[in-house]
Design a protein around this nucleic acid. Sequence first.
DNA 1: TAACGGTAAGTTGTTAACAACTTACTGATT
DNA 2: AATCAGTAAGTTGTTAACAACTTACCGTTA
Lengths: 240, 240
Amino acid sequence: MDEDQSLTTALRDLSPAPRTSLADEVLDRLRQEIVRGRFRPGHRLSESMLAEAFGVSRGPVREALAQLQQEGLVKVERHRGARVNRISAEDVGELYELRIDLERFAVKRAVQLVTDGELARMEEVVSAYADAVERDAVQEAVDLDMEFHGLIYKAARHTRLYSCWTNLLRSQIHAFVLSNSLADSSYMAPCVSEHSKIRGALEARDRERAAELVDDHLRGAYERLVRTSFEGKQAGKMRR
Amino acid sequence: MDEDQSLTTALRDLSPAPRTSLADEVLDRLRQEIVRGRFRPGHRLSESMLAEAFGVSRGPVREALAQLQQEGLVKVERHRGARVNRISAEDVGELYELRIDLERFAVKRAVQLVTDGELARMEEVVSAYADAVERDAVQEAVDLDMEFHGLIYKAARHTRLYSCWTNLLRSQIHAFVLSNSLADSSYMAPCVSEHSKIRGALEARDRERAAELVDDHLRGAYERLVRTSFEGKQAGKMRR
DNA sequence: TAACGGTAAGTTGTTAACAACTTACTGATT
DNA sequence: AATCAGTAAGTTGTTAACAACTTACCGTTA
């Protein structure tokens, strides 16, 4: 039916967000506050204080804190409350060792499954990233960095793999990369062309090259991160 | 001080569980009920019904359901409640594809980090597993299977990797392997010697052999699982 | 007959109050 | 001075009640 067709087409453009729960809103805002460094590591996150600040009751706040613990941004101790996690050199080592393994896995699947729309979006993100780096818009650039890598995971069409990224890796990596980039703005420059090359390998459906590029990109990024954030400490070279 | 020494030694043996939260108790019991098949896929899990059944209020039940969703055992939909997940052929494919990658990763680390105590415990578990298989004690055997693989992840000393196992893989795999083994008791027999060989490679600190054995073990197990549970459907061979 | 509006039952989302626990402080005791 | 019991303040864990939403049912209308 023609009527139906136009109706569903119209509806598709409408109503992107049907209305979310308070817990989700609190979760998103709180995650952003922590990632952007407005709550420092060690800072106590009292449920009642947060509830008042966000204008909700403690229930949704509790839910959000539980999820943020899963993401590694906070630590909740029974009867002792939640604190913002400090990300140690060991944490970064674990995060990147696992990330390299999973993102190689992801990009190899993505080579075969990525859609034209996703490749187009990646190109947009790479361009916007280059522009943000140029303008020294650090926060914006890191957001785009995260989106680029998220697109790779998403293109892999593997729900559990994607969940590893969003629930286990992303938030802590986001927080750490941002704080590092604010301290050392030279971190991001090499990433621009590397992202572009990874996208190119995906478009060319070159599986081995894509995996190799992701590997090199992440190892290089890891090296730069630990060099500026943990120099002096035994930074621990990662084994191949 | 000698007094202190003996005191701490005594305390270490005491109080293994200082008292847990209601949410955790509900979580453990509910997970067990689902894994053991007392709640079938599609079964609605109403918060108030569960609260009454466990003798607690809805709060702890809600927390438990959120965690079980993370583990993949239930699906919670906003304002529509929770249902027990059905594990599809695609789910098993995803689970094992990711599991093979992660468990290879885990065992390669474990080769270098496993302790004598852990090797000893593995030997116990392998023996008990063989015995349970012999006695056709299926449920007990599958519990021990899960413990064996959990020990590998634990020995890898990688908190996020271990979290992948406990939060993302274990519960669904446990549920599926148990239901499969109850239907086809021949599934488990080959695992006994394979477990033993993996333990042997760990003890011998033979990294490549351990990884290869884990790979073969899991691919073989996957083949047997899909053969009996999804024969007819396009089971999808896993790429190497 | 099929589509529509209204309503009732039952569910989840959220709140506010109470119970249990942790922590820091105070003052007595050795 | 150091240790310890007692206590008070503040936190989280849990509960029960209320609000918002989903769903199914039922009679009406075209």
